[in-house]
Simulated scan of single mutants.
Amino acid sequence: MSFSPQSKVWVYQSDRKFTAIEENEILQKLKSFTEQWKAHGNELLAKAEIRYGFFIILTVDEQQANVTGCSIDSSVRLIKDIEQKYGVDLFNRFNISYLLNDEVKVCNKEDFETLVNIKQITPATIVFNNMVQTLHDLETKWEVPFKNSWHSTVFAHLL
């Protein structure tokens, strides 16, 4: 199925990598959820995926039906259930992720600041912008060099 570039996306970042078994179980839960996800009785054109073993990404194409507060609440409940069942933190926006030797690393804001300070994070280091809101932005602005990210404005004094 084809999704509009303007489809809404939500990115939930885990504080640790899912095991292969966990990822399979979570993908099954996500698939079951997206297949029956509705907004005011209208089925939503939705999909879910896990990238890098860390990121749960939900996508909804609103050309078919608009997402409502209730439908968003149901997705948040699902993510909270996953969080509880697998003992992960999926809502901490202060955890920052980046690529190091093609491997995703997640750390808190203070540790990230230290890594920038000691030049472990460079202007070219790929960071993840989990604030993206559309499929187009996910494809073009999610994985970006530190120097082109919102992170660089927060930590600009260290560069």
Rank of each mutant, 00 (worst) to 15 (best):
Q133S: 14
S74R: 14
V144L: 07
L78Y: 01
T114P: 00
L90K: 01
D137K: 13
I121A: 02
Q84M: 07
V104W: 07
D89S: 11
Q64H: 06
E110L: 14
K141V: 06
I56K: 01
R77I: 12
I57C: 02
L138F: 10
R77S: 12
K85R: 01
S71R: 13
Q120A: 12
L99M: 14
N108G: 08
V116N: 01
G87P: 02
D137M: 12
R93F: 07
Y98L: 13
N92L: 00
Q84S: 11
F91E: 11
K105Y: 03
H136W: 09
T134K: 04
I79P: 00
Q84E: 13
D89A: 08
V67M: 13
H136N: 12
E103P: 09
E49P: 05
L78P: 06
Y98W: 15
T59N: 05
Y52A: 09
Q63P: 03
L138G: 06
N101T: 05
K47S: 13
E83K: 06
Y52P: 09
K109Q: 09
Q120V: 11
L99N: 04
T122G: 14
L138H: 01
Q64Y: 08
T140H: 10
Q64M: 09
F128P: 07
V104K: 06
S75Q: 15
K80T: 05
T59Q: 11
R51T: 11
S71F: 15
I96L: 13
N130R: 11
Q64A: 04
K141I: 08
D81C: 02
F91I: 04
I56L: 15
T122F: 10
Q133W: 05
